[in-house]
Design a protein around this nucleic acid. Structure first.
Lengths: 221, 221
DNA sequence: GTCTATAGTGGGATAGAC
DNA sequence: GTCTATCCCACTATAGAC
């Protein structure tokens, strides 16, 4: 944890904030209410956290860690790249589920590139590395066959896809976000098959572009 | 315009808001300042607009219309699908450029699915239809060859890509958002080539998935 | 020096007189 | 349809408690 010193008061405030935001939504959970439920004064809450945004931010870390843990468990023993990728992706949706009430307000904060809560920010580097590392494991532990030039950028690209899944999941209006699951069930095997096509000479120019685009994205975001 | 009745006062408020937000940013442009610059009271501003968000929302319409106009001009006479698609995409980036100071705050509002400013919302239907219609023209005026089952969903899919481009552009940290342009320069030809591959029997299963995924997305977002 | 409490400030939004 | 007056919020400043 490269964050603050541990403090029971601090933890109580985070907990109160998470509960209240889940109960009432982001706007309706006022800093006064959060402080009151945590049994501290408003001033104390602001002593520990720069603002409401930072208070909420800690949840990201929790989600990423829960995801990594469940994904590692679910793909243990699996060898096929598709199996491992599916395990990691669906584990993410499982972990996300209870946090759904937080999805909209969290996304509104995280989408701002200059915000510390943005997945691309300097401050998010630890959480980002956790998830990229997980996808590295997805690749490394597998028997993937594709254009070898793609491999170094693949974990990062999968993490980018991971943020895309988040975006789709938040916007998914279907019951229990079934659409996101169905899209993954359809597109992950397709992705697997496309990667496999990377071995074919006919596909060479397409994979040239893919490698180049992934590099560009990595540099400019 | 299926919106409000025209009113000079209303227009003055919109203009003041746009200017102030570009000058100072979204947060710093207070409703009080906007009202003052427009020469009306705070209460009057709230008479015309439900809130700050709605006040800013009108800008979307303007961007979509400017884009459609420039794109139609730029692709006039072009027959090749790739040429038309590139014309439409790069026209969009050209149109977006002067609005860059608004990008972050606007995205923060638009990303919330329940917001009227979301590109997927009921209220955004007119703007959405404008842009989907433009991509329909991109396809219809072209000599595109691909798996025919893809065609009905293609304009909507291109609009989805269009919102993705917006997302990348807002996050693009490179000088003058050069990365987004380079990514497009690389990936649009690749997309064109992939669509062309839809004619090959080998690609049949991949295009089955593509058609299915596009349908799922269309239904669940 | 570390934490807490209190009393502000300013901004978004609303009610109701005219 | 325009205004004034007011509410409630996030957030700040700062004095004091331990």
């Amino acid at each position: 944890m490269p964050t603050q010193t541990d403090s029971p008061t601090r933890d109580r405030i985070v907990e109160a904030a998470t509960d209240l935001v889940i109960e009432r939504g982001y706007e309706a959970a006022t800093m006064r209410d959060i402080a009151e439920r945590a049994g501290v004064s408003l001033g104390s809450a602001y002593h520990y956290f720069r603002g409401k945004e930072e208070l909420i931010g800690g949840i990201y870390v929790r989600i990423a860690e829960e995801h990594a843990e469940k994904a590692r468990h679910d793909m243990a023993g699996q060898k096929k790249f598709l199996d491992r990728l599916e395990a990691a992706a669906f584990a993410y949706l499982d972990v996300l589920e209870p946090y759904r009430p937080l999805a909209e307000p969290l996304l509104a904060l995280a989408i701002v590139p200059s915000s510390s809560l943005s997945p691309f920010s300097e401050e998010s580097a630890p959480v980002r590395d956790t998830t990229i590392g997980l996808y590295q494991e997805v690749v490394d532990g597998s028997n993937i066959t594709t254009d070898m030039r793609l491999l170094p950028d693949l974990p990062h690209a999968l993490w980018l896809m991971h943020t895309g899944i988040t975006l789709a999941w938040v916007h998914d209006k279907s019951e229990g976000q079934a659409m996101t699951r169905e899209v993954l069930a359809r597109s992950l095997p397709a992705l697997d098959r496309m990667l496999w096509l990377g071995k074919m000479p006919l596909m060479r120019p397409l994979f040239n572009d893919a490698v180049e685009v992934l590099h560009l994205l990595r540099g400019g975001l």
